[in-house]
Design a protein around this nucleic acid. Sequence first.
DNA 1: GAAACTAGTTTCCATGAAGAAACCCATTGT
DNA 2: ACAATGGGTTTCTTCATGGAAACTAGTTTC
Lengths: 122, 122
Amino acid sequence: MKKKLIHEPAACAGRMLAIRDTVELLSGKWKIQIIGTLVFENSMKFMELKRNIPGIGAKMLSKELQELEINQLITRTVCDTKPITVEYKITPYGLTLEPIIAELATWGTNHRKHLFSTTASN
Amino acid sequence: MKKKLIHEPAACAGRMLAIRDTVELLSGKWKIQIIGTLVFENSMKFMELKRNIPGIGAKMLSKELQELEINQLITRTVCDTKPITVEYKITPYGLTLEPIIAELATWGTNHRKHLFSTTASN
DNA sequence: GAAACTAGTTTCCATGAAGAAACCCATTGT
DNA sequence: ACAATGGGTTTCTTCATGGAAACTAGTTTC
């Protein structure tokens, strides 16, 4: 039986390409936060999102949402309410990002503890 | 027994903070690629890294490596070879990023297939 | 009629990220 | 003497990111 080579050059290059692809799709200061929120809440209005993500401006939010919609990670639905509202919802495909978001969250949480324990000993 | 509330506001905000922390630590065009390479290869020289990450310039590489070192994700060791070489190595702490890198890689790989199957039907 | 709300778009501007190229230093090879 | 190699740093310049504020537009409330 041929031994599986972890460092097979082609596999390594392909892996790096895949990583680049993912990172590029989630590039920009806010996309991960938006996805993170929508993975959690499933669907939100424009203003709810704006309130939920402190610091983001309307322009940025609208731009990032457009890009996420283009990549089919979220859907945009105009609701026929009195003052018109727009609902942004995560797609099943967008939900496949959940493991990434979860890993980012748990790592960040542990990192906080790590910082505490190392700076406390100074 | 009290039911665990996923949407507990404090937990949600903390989770978003954790995500921001992680993303910020890995911000920049190249850090994830560098970490990805070092998680895979364990240790590399400066020039090896430069060759392995197509497109990166010396300035960027050096800057990103410094930042990663500050955050204790990698170590920098000057080797006493004839033309001096510097070895960059992932730390045990840096290795804890492996799950994130792995998720990014698998998602990116699946995304390629997803793109194929949707554009092929056009 | 004026103001407020939602959901943006547009314009203008400042900062910063990133690339290219030149340079530095030490050593080895020719 | 000169070029090459490894590991950078410095300078200069450009382009993209992103923020603030003003504006549009339809509907409802005062």
